Simulated assay, not measured.
Amino acid sequence: MPNQQKKIIFCVAGVLSFVCALGVVTALGTPLWVKATILCKTGALLVNASGKELDKFTGEMQYGLFHGEGVRQCGLGDRPFQFSIFPDLLKAIPVSVHVNIILFSIILIVLTMVGAAFFMYNAFGKPFESLHGPLGLYLLSFISGLPSKDGV
């Protein structure tokens, strides 16, 4: 492949990787990004609601990582409510799910930024030169010191 074509491919890949990281940050920064429909089971079972009557017992809820809001309908009209992560959201969403979303989102952001950095370095730098000298020695020592799948 010609040198100019490599630079273009690596630049495009780096920009796409950076846009992915920005997309994750934007999704996490959006306050209400999960939408749900909730049903007031008790009220619906009490009057044996079905069809159009069931709409009187169906509410909506929106939440993000740290707070949410919604409208509850149990046949008596709209009742708006708000909740935050402590302690209300933890009753609705298990803590492990919440922590995993945050953890994997952070990992995704870090990995896409590292990928963007490598793509840009390959496009504009000379990666083969970094393996010579002390930096290459440190890099190879670090890679050889990583534990393997077997734990050895």
Rank of each mutant, 00 (worst) to 15 (best):
V97E: 06
G14Q: 12
P80Q: 07
E53T: 10
C20K: 02
C74T: 10
Q82Y: 01
G51S: 02
Y121G: 13
K35Y: 14
I107Y: 06
T37Q: 14
E60F: 08
F18W: 07
A49V: 08
R79E: 13
L140A: 12
C11L: 06
F81A: 05
L103C: 11
A123W: 04
L45T: 11
E53P: 01
L28C: 06
Q62K: 14
L45C: 02
L146Y: 01
V97A: 08
A117Q: 01
F142C: 03
G43R: 03
S17G: 12
L108E: 07
H98Y: 04
A36T: 14
L131I: 14
V99L: 14
G133F: 09
S96P: 00
I101M: 02
K149G: 05
V152T: 13
L111G: 02
F83M: 09
Q5V: 11
N122W: 08
T42M: 11
C20H: 02
K149N: 07
G75R: 15
F57H: 04
I106A: 14
H132Q: 12
F118I: 09
N100I: 08
V110H: 01
F57S: 01
H98T: 11
G151A: 04
G14K: 11
L108N: 12
L16H: 00
V34N: 12
G23D: 05
A117F: 13
V19M: 13
L137G: 10
F57E: 01
G151W: 03
I102G: 06
M61S: 07
V12S: 06
R72Q: 10
Q73R: 15
T42H: 13
S141V: 04
E129W: 09
Q62R: 13
K6E: 09
